[in-house]
Design a protein around this nucleic acid. Structure first.
Lengths: 263, 263
DNA sequence: CTTTTGTATTCGTATATACGAACTATGTTC
DNA sequence: GAACATAGTTCGTATATACGAATACAAAAG
């Protein structure tokens, strides 16, 4: 299927993504240079994107900024998936028992994508990381999801055998990763010790329906609050929530739009 | 400037928006019919959008769904605007004093667009309406923002003099709206009594910097918890927050990407 | 088993779009 | 104030793209 992509479509997406990554804005000439597209070609695309509010053009400083539409339609997506609402409720009940941060998300190629975050109720979410991506191998539930693949497949995903480090604790080699994945396959639980965020430990597990690894969830706790006894409680709550979520998804299997597989 | 929009760009955005509105998915033929574009023209666009994860194609049921990318880049947008983070902190301090729902948003043509919602801390956000739009005249801070326009301009915005109703309490005519706007201009405060959501009352105000109406905020309370005494407290907190936010925005005026004006 | 109706996909040519060059406008440098 | 950068904009033609018709394939109906 290795499609020869439609050039204009690819260009439009390139524009949107580039602008989304640059909060300080970009001029038309900036876009032209960075995307290697003639200004005259970019011009009608950019003006149309601005009319539709996917971009915001400030005429005074001659800069394009990310527009509201991407945000508007992106949130429609996440709010419409009503299965996610049910999953939020499951997470909520866990959250109320332990009052620690919960994450729920899926694999997106070799990254994890956070779909739901549920914070401590003592402190409000100020900076959210919903919609963020991180390398799967650096996170608790990412590793749980990677455990569906054989050691050989994992090796193929990382041809040079090395893993880019996020913190000082990130696993460094495919061999270390495969060792952990074997253990995860055996127990069903995955652990993260400050591998994506310094000072945060996680217990995590994958959501598996009919043998397909569809999603993952984790409990994230600051090191100093992470004890052996609490870990036992966390795992028991995770297991319970996992079964509930698996039931929810299997009842509305067709509504689960994520393949959950590496494409 | 009434640009003759770039057809292909408009088509791509039409596809994205249509699919975002249809959680149950659409076939290529559905898209073709609804957008009045030949299937053969749509095909390369849709496959490219799918490769880039803006669409998700389920080959078994031959349907396109909203993909994750819109969500991913939409959230990048909202998280990158660091001025919003500071505003969230101001709202948070208000929220902690009264424990009621707060909204913050901007005008988007004649709608309000919710950028921030802060819930009661006793109950978790399960269904969010961040990213949603509502007619400005039906909401508290929407009316506060509309008050920047003269009665004549308001009349021009609604040429037939009638306002589409959202609930039984929505203002019905431009004359009623203009009467309220005059009062809002005088006092700086705006009220909503179940006009967008049955049973919810709001007090609201506009954020105004150098004479420009940039954004709005509101406190939303269930009717039975809305008393005259609390209203006094709400207005005092709104005023304080308003001044703080105006200060924040005026200090980073160039970072405020919204014109705040009807375009 | 044949027909109908639904889907996606392919292909050659008509057509909309892209692009280089030239241009305008504004601000900066010397 | 002349010279130089910076930006956005316009235009005619070369070229990539769009589209109708035809194809393929699957499922449902007769």
């Amino acid at each position: 299927m290795a499609e020869s992509a439609h050039r204009t479509t690819a260009r439009i997406l390139d524009i949107l993504e580039l602008v989304a990554e640059h909060p300080t804005g970009l001029t038309l000439a900036d876009l032209s240079r960075r995307l290697d597209i003639p200004k005259s070609s970019l011009h009608p695309l950019a003006t149309t994107l601005a009319v539709r509010k996917y971009l915001h053009y400030n005429p005074r400083e001659e800069r394009y900024y990310a527009g509201e539409s991407l945000f508007v339609y992106g949130n429609k997506f996440i709010n419409n998936v009503d299965i996610l609402e049910k999953i939020r409720n499951v997470l909520l009940s866990v959250n109320q028992k332990i009052n620690e941060t919960l994450y729920f998300g899926v694999l997106s190629n070799l990254d994890v994508l956070y779909l739901i975050k549920m914070d401590l109720f003592s402190q409000f979410r100020v900076v959210s990381n919903i919609g963020n991506k991180l390398p799967a191998y650096s996170t608790g539930y990412g590793k749980a999801l990677l455990s569906q693949y054989s050691p050989r497949q994992i090796e193929q995903f990382f041809p040079d055998g090395k893993l880019k480090s996020i913190t000082a604790n990130t696993l460094a080699t495919v061999d270390e990763l495969n060792a952990q994945l074997a253990e995860i396959r055996r127990t069903g639980f995955s652990y993260e010790k400050g591998e994506s965020t310094e000072g945060i430990q996680c217990v995590a597990t994958a959501i598996i329906v009919d043998g397909s690894y569809l999603a993952g969830m984790s409990i994230a706790v600051p090191e100093f609050r992470y004890t052996a006894e609490r870990e036992i409680q966390f795992k028991s709550l995770l297991l319970e929530a996992k079964q509930q979520i698996q039931k929810i998804i299997s009842e509305q299997r067709n509504q689960w739009i994520y393949s959950g597989e590496f494409v």
